[in-house]
């Protein structure tokens, strides 16, 4: 089936986004990689919607886009806050949770 390709593509994009989050130390890039992962999930939703001829998946993808927008707004606000405090911003600088 042709949809299998779409799903595999979603998995690959998800993994790419994940590896970006794990490797890049700039919070801006991390945030973008998270957006990548959101979109990979959305792609899977839309694919399954097409596969089953059911619109619910598309609606869910739409809601995900909304939430992702909210997340991006909050994330960017946090980044702005971090930049205000420090010269350089690095995800690794924030590690007060250390056990």
């Amino acid at each position: 089936m042709v949809e299998n390709g779409y799903l595999a593509l979603a998995a690959v994009l998800f993994a790419l986004g994940g590896v970006g989050v794990l490797l890049r130390r700039s919070p801006l890039i991390s945030l973008m990689c998270v957006e990548l992962m959101w979109n990979a999930a959305n792609l899977a939703f839309v694919t399954f919607a097409r596969m089953h001829g059911n619109m619910d998946g598309q609606v869910f993808a739409f809601l995900t886009i909304t939430v992702a927008a909210a997340e991006a707004a909050i994330g960017l606000a946090l980044i702005v806050l971090l930049f205000r405090r420090r010269e350089h911003v690095d995800v690794d600088d924030v590690h007060s949770l250390r056990g």
């Binding site: 994940g18 989050v21 794990l22 490797l23 130390r25 995800v91 590690h95 949770l97 250390r98 056990g99």
Partner: peptide, 17 residues
């Protein structure tokens, strides 16, 4: 097991993955 709890978000993410 304390070393697992490094405080680095990327480490946590790696563990999760």
């Amino acid at each position: 097991l304390g070393w697992l709890h490094s405080g680095y978000v990327r480490r946590y993410g790696l563990t999760l993955v």
